[in-house]
């Protein structure tokens, strides 16, 4: 047990205290995001991630936002287990025809007002998989989309920026 505590002590808080671990650009986006989330979502933005046909690349990068380098929860953003708890749906993949109904239902289950962010080249327009007997193409072909972040896959940093842009757009519209 002592070894465990020792390791925690030695590692430190890499998101805050270790200078070489900090990415000033990321911190800046994060702080802007925290301010907006505070303003519009009472300090807490809940995201439900939906893989609608992805290769799992986007999932890995969405997951990375939870690691201690990014630690996105400190900006008031957390991933939730149910669409019923979500403010924002983060949708990846070309929408496979076999996920089409599940995606519609997930969208229906998300309370209004809701935001949809299409993550990755496939979610934007079908990407490498295009439109076929098995693929509907981009997410906007199935549900209304508020923002698109391209990339294969988008990096955690660009995903953060896209979430910020989407939240800002929402303020502009209000």
């Amino acid at each position: 047990m002592l070894k465990l505590f020792n390791k925690i002590r030695k590692t430190g808080v890499i998101t805050e205290d270790v200078p070489e671990g900090r990415d000033p650009a990321f911190e800046e986006v994060g702080e802007q995001l925290r301010a907006k989330v505070g303003e519009i979502f009472s300090g807490s933005l809940a995201i439900r991630e939906v893989d609608a046909g992805s290769c799992n690349g986007c999932e890995l990068e969405a997951n990375a936002l939870n690691n201690s380098w990014y630690s996105i929860e400190r900006f008031g953003i957390h991933f939730v287990a149910s669409p019923r708890h979500a403010d924002l749906l983060l949708v990846t993949g070309p929408v496979s025809r076999h996920m089409e109904a599940a995606l519609r239902r997930t969208w229906d289950a998300t309370p209004n007002p809701k935001l949809v962010l299409a993550m990755g080249d496939c979610a934007a327009d079908g990407g490498e998989f295009g439109v076929s007997y098995a693929s509907c193409g981009g997410v906007s072909s199935i549900i209304p989309v508020d923002g698109v972040i391209r990339g294969c896959p988008p990096t955690p940093m660009s995903l953060m920026k896209a979430i910020l842009a989407l939240v800002e757009k929402r303020t502009d519209n209000d």
């Binding site: 046909g53 070309p94 496979s96 076999h98 076929s132 007997y133 098995a134």
Partner: peptide, 11 residues
């Protein structure tokens, strides 16, 4: 399974 079938062999 089969939910993320996206026609890889066909395309």
């Amino acid at each position: 399974l089969g939910y993320v079938h996206k026609g890889i062999e066909k395309i």
